[in-house]
Amino acid sequence: MVQIETFGIEKWMDDYQPGAKYDLAETCCASISLDDLQSLSVGEKKSIISSSKKLGYGDIRGSKELIANLARLYSRQAPSPLPEENILITSGAIAANHLLMYALVGPGDHVICHYPTYQQLYAEPTALGAEVDLWKANPDKNWSLDIEELKRLLKPNTKMIIVKSLLEGVVKIAEEKDIIVLSDEVYRPLYHSVDPQSPEFPPSLVSLGSKHTIVTGSMSKAYSLAGIRLGWIASRNSDIIEKVAGARHYTIISVSQLDSAVAAYALSDDVHDGLLSRNMNLARDNLKILDQFVINHSDVCDWVKPVAGTTAFVRFHKGGKPIDAQVLCRRLVQEAGVCWAPGDYSFGKEFKGYVRIGYVCETQVLRDGLAQTALWLQENFDALPTTEQSPCP
């Protein structure tokens, strides 16, 4: 039996998210309804799926319309178009990542993973028997990564490098050493500090043209449609896609036609840019609100202000010592109804005092949740323990 450790962030969300009045732990852009989605279309207001369509298995590898839309989007900043057959549809990005690990990684392999990141990306290769080293971002240097450190982590049996951001230097190293680079791009293209039309807008890793790269994505985070459970894998390397497609037969036969139809509609020419613009504006407006909260509480917290995505990692401290984030987050949700996620429980024991805050929810939820948090901190912060004062779990 494969042994795998508790999935910290998902366990915390299971325990505390459902009862929260103000969910500021969620990582998706504020969810939308089908009516909302259709209202964003600049073209003919056609139905998303015909009510007369027969709901069989559908296209096994993914709907043709959805794959065509993804291929078009991935080809926007690429030197050459991404072939449609190099995209595989899955049940969410978590399934995409699982399939890649299951198909490509095993005992005797070495994996290097950008850290901190989603726990699946390093826990699952470990459970499959691979040796995993963490390539750690430095919070004191704006969470930057050191390419020289990556070089030191390389081994003769390094099979895969897992990153959450676009790094051309990583691709160059991977090509020299014949290593696969996997980029989990679930938050792409929510680079809200850059105009989407700007030449500085980061392309997808797969758009660099290298056959050593793989990306995964989903409709959940940047596209506000977590409820349809739709993700994908894309690569310039058709051999990788075919190997993963073989592994996919053991897990899912096909993805729901209903989910695929919604995703295809959302990523169509008529809708995509409006949906992304809606979420870009939401992220920019809400980040200003969270920034003001951090400024107002700068005596007890600090952060590296996000330039993309939907989450912030904020560090709380008292007398030079990190606050016990688990106590803070547990009491905050139980007594004020505000859900945050503690960094040390969710991402690694070294992140003491850190909390993850999702800020691209409905703006009023963020305003009200932070207002309740401010009142609660005013009354309770001084009594919160630091990590040195707290008993070991």
Rank of each mutant, 00 (worst) to 15 (best):
R76W: 00
R76M: 07
R76A: 00
Q77A: 05
Q77D: 05
Q77H: 06
Q77R: 15
A78H: 01
A78M: 03
A78R: 04
A78K: 00
A78T: 02
A78V: 00
P79W: 02
P79E: 04
P79L: 00
S80Y: 07
S80V: 03
P81C: 00
P81H: 03
P81A: 02
L82G: 07
L82W: 07
L82F: 04
P83T: 10
E84L: 01
E84Q: 14
E84F: 00
E85K: 15
E85A: 13
E85L: 05
E85Y: 06
E85S: 14
E85V: 08
N86G: 02
N86T: 01
N86I: 00
N86K: 11
N86Y: 01
I87S: 09
I87Q: 12
I87E: 11
I87C: 09
I87N: 12
L88C: 08
L88P: 02
L88A: 06
L88E: 06
L88D: 08
I89P: 01
I89L: 04
I89H: 01
I89G: 00
T90D: 11
T90P: 13
T90Q: 07
T90I: 10
T90S: 14
S91W: 02
S91D: 15
S91N: 15
S91K: 15
S91T: 15
S91L: 12
S91E: 15
G92Q: 02
G92L: 07
G92S: 09
G92N: 06
G92I: 05
G92D: 06
A93D: 14
A93Q: 11
A93Y: 13
I94L: 15
I94Y: 11
A95T: 12
A96K: 10
N97A: 08
N97L: 04
N97I: 09
H98E: 13
H98L: 10
H98P: 00
H98F: 14
H98W: 13
H98R: 14
L99P: 10
L99V: 13
L99Y: 10
L100S: 02
L100H: 06
L100Y: 10
L100M: 12
L100W: 06
M101R: 03
M101K: 03
M101W: 07
M101A: 12
M101V: 12
M101E: 02
Y102A: 13
Y102E: 14
A103I: 00
A103L: 04
A103R: 10
A103W: 02
A103K: 07
L104V: 08
L104F: 11
L104P: 05
L104M: 15
L104Y: 05
L104R: 12
V105G: 04
V105R: 08
V105E: 03
V105L: 01
G106C: 06
G106N: 09
G106T: 09
G106Y: 07
G106E: 01
G106A: 13
P107F: 03
P107L: 04
P107A: 10
P107R: 05
P107M: 03
P107Y: 06
P107I: 04
